[in-house]
Design a protein around this nucleic acid. Structure first.
Lengths: 138, 138
DNA sequence: CCGCATCCCTATAGATACTG
DNA sequence: CAGTATCTATAGGGATGCGG
């Protein structure tokens, strides 16, 4: 990515990083599907290519949204985790999910989950965030 | 756009429509800058091209996010307005703006506005929505 | 097996100029 | 004024390769 900033508008700055077809899907998989490894991200229903995935993981790391580390139990594997800045994207995912549930033909089961998270407001978001943070300490 | 659906995930369905560099900037200009005409969108700081703008306005209309109509006071002009589905994207803009304010180097003044809207919660969002709806009746 | 890097090729984005 | 035509640049899919 690394496009030069086109304006200081907060919405624009956010979109310069996450405003594409794939970035928020990767973060969704980190948050809701508990994915941590390269191969797992490759296997999402939407089918990201390995080339695009590698590039996005790199820039997300460069921009402080996630961290890369070695899997202690399995030398070959690399573990990706969200930083605080990444976890803070949860409200964006929640509002996007709520909108999709309401205005697009979403899968019934997933739609209900999205609506519940959105309806739960701040409290529900905080609970999810706490769960995500716990993993870093472990 | 019109890419065939890659999954029924609500977040994915949202991203298939608004997950790109420009769509949410157009909606931002409709919501916060009160823009209504083709030329006005062209003049945003980020500099969208006329071709891309025309295409996005078309698909947004096709997907029921905005409406196109003639300006009664000025025969040549076309007026773009958000539908209810479009207005419902406001929480997405709000969370994106809040994230950008907190985690990117955003313009001071705009950052404060974004933070206030986010901090205001549901009530602040509802007030903005009401203002937007009023325009349709007029 | 793992996380990528590289290559090739096509689809789409975008700049610029122009039209009804 | 709201868009198109045309041309070029880039993003991205898919196959394959490669060091650890």
């Amino acid at each position: 990515m690394a496009t030069r900033e086109k304006s200081g508008c907060p919405i624009n700055l956010s979109l310069e990083l996450v405003g594409d077809r794939w970035t928020l899907l990767i973060i969704r998989d980190l948050v809701f599907a508990g994915k941590r490894h390269f191969r797992e991200f490759l296997q999402s229903d939407e089918g990201i290519s390995s080339r695009t995935l590698a590039e996005r993981l790199q820039t997300l790391q460069d921009e402080g949204i996630l961290t890369r580390s070695d899997d202690p139990t399995h030398g070959l594997k690399t573990v990706y985790r969200l930083t605080e800045a990444g976890i803070d994207l949860l409200p964006v995912l929640a509002t996007l999910g709520a909108w999709g549930s309401k205005h697009r033909k979403a899968d019934e089961r997933l739609a209900r989950i999205a609506e519940e998270l959105a309806a739960g407001g701040e409290a529900a978001l905080e609970r999810t965030k706490t769960t995500l943070r716990a993993e870093h300490i472990v």
